[in-house]
Design a protein around this nucleic acid. Structure first.
Length: 291
DNA sequence: TTGTGTTTTATTGCCTCC
DNA sequence: GGAGGCAATAAAACACAA
């Protein structure tokens, strides 16, 4: 038998021996007393057993009870309570990890919002420049081939964009379109350029002048805002050369895929929870996370 | 010493599975 | 229907500050 701990204010031994313990008479005599804590040795053995397997088959329960000098019922209760404690701790750990993940995503989101604001300012500024140019050039080419767009306007557009790589892609595209003489206006192509260059403006906007900011800023946000990823139809492209044009807008798709993969990995990491309830926990946490 | 908060042991009631 | 699991809860034991 594993003796009673000294110095805990308990005045008498819990049980004198396992054999005595297992005798109903002895236990019945002792039981009416107030409940007592298990000794450190008893707890240690129970803990070791719990680490091996957190469920208790009847044989193991009986064996443990015999070794520890406890009633099988006490062993079962101890395991029950231990599982409850373990589950609580596990939930705390899961919460901490999810919170860290959430905080990181939020920081990223905030950074993207700032980026979005910056690019919106650029769009406004460049649009104004274009309008000024068109006005000063006497409206002669308002509906004419955009290939006539002055070089200095192109240059100013380029200057206004801070992401050269994206700009190059879109500029090539823009030039291609201009060269077709298909009636695409400078403004149209600038729209496409800005979206591609910023990498944040996408989808909902079709490439017509009229629909660029049709209802104020809502459309605007469809590309630059966070929210659900909907890069439908390759973003801004409305004509035949969509390749690469939504490059910037695919950013969110990649990021969300990465986040989903991380979440999957996280929950997969809990696969050792052979307990049905643990799956429920994961489900609940994932519900919390995505709702 | 005492009041209070926390931890541990045990009970109850409900649910699921065989 | 019985066994065993779980959540909720009670209550004793314990820790600790005032």
């Amino acid at each position: 038998m594993l003796g009673l701990e000294e110095g805990r204010g308990v005045k008498r031994p819990f049980f004198t021996s396992p054999d005595e313990l297992l005798e109903e008479e002895y236990y019945d005599e002792q039981l009416p007393e107030k409940k007592r804590r298990l000794t450190p040795e008893q707890v240690h053995l129970l803990e070791r057993s719990f680490e091996e397997e957190n469920k208790l088959e009847p044989e193991r329960k009986t064996e443990l009870a015999r070794k520890l000098g406890l009633q099988p019922r006490q062993v079962a209760v101890w395991f029950q309570n231990r599982r409850a404690r373990w589950k609580t701790k596990q939930l705390e750990r899961d919460f901490d990890r999810l919170k860290a993940s959430f905080d990181a995503l939020r920081a990223d989101h905030d950074a993207l919002l700032q980026d979005n604001h910056r690019l919106r300012s650029q769009v406004v500024s460049l649009t104004e420049k274009l309008q000024e140019k068109e006005a000063t050039e006497g409206g002669a080419s308002a509906g004419t081939d955009a290939a006539e767009l002055p070089l200095d306007v192109k240059a100013s557009l380029a200057d206004g964009i801070e992401e050269p790589a994206a700009f190059e892609v879109q500029q090539v595209k823009s030039e291609d379109r201009l060269s077709t003489g298909s009636g695409g206006s400078a403004v149209v192509d600038t729209d496409a350029l800005l979206c591609g260059a910023g990498g944040r403006f996408a989808a909902a906007v079709d490439s017509s002048v009229e629909s660029y900011f049709p209802g104020g800023e809502e459309h605007y946000h469809d590309c630059g805002g966070m929210g659900p990823v909907n890069h439908g139809a390759g973003g801004i492209q409305s004509d035949d050369d969509g390749a690469g044009s939504d490059e910037g807008c695919s950013y969110y798709a990649e990021e969300e895929a990465a986040a989903a993969a991380a979440a999957a990995a996280f929950f997969a990491g809990h696969a050792h929870h052979h307990h049905a309830d643990d799956d429920e926990d994961a489900d609940q946490i994932s519900w919390w996370m995505w709702n």
